[in-house]
Write a protein that binds this DNA or RNA. Structure first.
Lengths: 341, 341
DNA sequence: CTGAAAGCGCTTACAG
DNA sequence: CTGAAAGCGCTTACAG
């Protein structure tokens, strides 16, 4: 590894002068020296040692992306998370920073990763409220959360209008004549995106004079277990033939549901209508293409980095909580009920 | 930040003794001291400063995952890459290391990221042959490549039997009576996975006395542009009604193709058979479920980390090139030709 | 078993 | 504009 000292020797100056050139403090260096040193730096392919720099400056140029993980689930298998992380990394890089990615289990000590590397800021995906509380207690770097509804304290959060998403779905289905509508998704009892989508959905129905039949709420214990979703399809097509439509909390689940319905000779949208959530690639890959609630992942990722850097640059900047809009995308998975057999 | 020195002061010992305790060199410390110091470390929540440690040790505990990116494409949007990266991160963490993720454009200087942080090893996804050559010239950390067919030098690589994948597809389709078969995928002219899948496919056909009609090779310029795939569907269903089946180089592309065929009133598998590649989640989310060539991503990711650490622990370990097996998964997207109308 | 010294490669703060 | 000194928080190598 070539160092400041070697460059300084070769240029016949002190390491301070080289350091100033490396850091672009050209006002402190004579033009001749600056140019000569720059030439040597280029020729010798000098790369500053970030560990030394971090130690001296007590900061790092590292941003951490921290994902809530699970023993038996690959959290980056979720297209939503993967897309966000990919965009964030690119954005962080473009700002001259480095990205460390951590996947933490509940009991893991997040502060260790953050503190050991003097991480300058962190973006969190999928954390639970109680974890957020603990994270705040032990860390004081700028932090931004994605899709948190925690109200235990004022935090910077980038989320979407989950309530409106559910509300739009309810209105759209009822406008198409559906009355007996199912809700399919993870449990709605936790404070989070699912609960808000559910609330918007129920209130949307209520406005149309419909109340959700509790038996028509189908709860998945695990987000990604295909068998559970297939089982729900079976129940709907066998035990609940009166249901004509479903609002499903993710495109992923919706696609399995449609597959399962089809296997039970219930065709979408002829016999049954489905609305998904997210507007992921998969919503255009299946047949019929999925009518869904879209969220803008690119904006979500970029804004989260923007908000983080705002706080990073001015430590007393107020926390920011942004709610991005959602919209209903009409495709082929919903049909008016009149056409149904 | 609490430091070694503070712990040493509080314990009334030198920082060396504390350092030995922190690093588990308990044979060098008296039992009483060790226990007292451990207690203080726990109470004060001491976390070693990795930047200082790295500087002193001239290494880091950081592994880099480097993905080939593209201006207008999110490389983590590929479920294949996202799943691999997720598993790798978890594995790297479980070994006590940290993961930095870089998404590089062609002209980017990879050695900068690697050298500035004293990165101890790197795993590369999606690099081209000429880039690999350059990477090797300027870096000397252990490196593992994923899915590279570069033969410019001996390198550690984890890949799959792409040739066999194509071969299996050809045999399976011909055994089901198909004769006029299309190949759909990215260009086959570059040395890489696609070329080998294509070669296996062509040779598989040849063994059955069939040669691929050059007009039946449909080439996609961009892997993910849905419109291009839909256009191919149109061509096949309108201009090439004699084609009865297709081997497609990814499940992603296959799903769009099936959707496009359907839009042109060609139903899979009744009118047309399709085999995909990867066995991603999507292959079970669409209707019909996709018959496809499966690769084991979990094994691929874990082995790549294993091989990297083998080289990292013994610097003169030979490079390892592993080829994982593939298998054909029978689902619903292929039907015998006799049943076709 | 224990610790004083030197050094890792940088930056900060200061003197000239 | 230039540089000598001190220090960031650790580890290595050595002496006791």
């Amino acid at each position: 590894m070539i160092t400041l000292k070697e460059i300084a020797n070769e240029a016949g100056v002190s390491i301070m002068t080289v350091s100033n050139v490396v850091n672009g403090n050209l006002s402190k260096v004579s033009k001749e020296n600056a140019e000569r040193i720059q030439k040597i730096i280029r020729e010798r392919k000098y790369i500053p040692n970030s560990t030394a720099r971090s130690l001296a400056k007590k900061n790092s140029n590292i941003i951490a992306i921290i994902l809530r993980g699970d023993q038996n689930e690959n959290t980056l298998q979720s297209p939503h998370n993967a897309a966000l992380v990919g965009i964030m990394i690119q954005k962080i890089q473009s700002l001259g920073y480095y990205t460390m990615v951590n996947i933490v289990q509940s009991q893991d000590d997040i502060s260790k990763s953050l503190r050991t590397w003097n991480v300058e800021g962190a973006i969190f995906l999928g954390m639970f409220d109680d974890e957020i509380e603990r994270i705040y207690q032990v860390n004081n770097v700028p932090m931004v959360f994605i899709d948190s509804y925690s109200n235990v304290r004022q935090l910077s959060n980038i989320g979407i209008d989950d309530y409106k998403g559910g509300y739009l779905a309810a209105h759209y289905l009822t406008k198409h004549g559906h009355q007996k509508i199912a809700f399919v998704g993870p449990p709605t009892k936790h404070n989070g995106v699912i609960q808000h989508r559910f609330a918007g959905f129920c209130n949307g129905l209520k406005e149309m004079g419909i109340s959700l039949n509790p038996h028509h709420q189908f709860t998945l214990e695990s987000e990604t277990k295909a068998e559970d979703i297939i089982e729900i399809s079976r129940k709907i097509s066998v035990d609940h033939r009166d249901i004509t439509a479903a609002f499903v909390t993710s495109d992923q689940i919706a696609s399995y549901l449609i597959h399962g319905l089809h296997a039970n000779h219930v065709n979408v949208p002829e016999d049954f209508s489905v609305i998904g959530f997210d507007n992921l690639l998969i919503s255009t890959q299946i047949t019929p293409q999925l009518t869904t609630i879209s969220q803008n992942l690119t904006e979500k990722a970029n804004l989260s980095v923007d908000v983080l850097f705002k706080q990073l640059k001015s430590p007393d900047a107020p926390t920011e909580s942004l709610v991005l809009d959602v919209a209903l995308i009409e495709r082929g998975s919903v049909a008016p009920i009149m056409q149904q057999s």
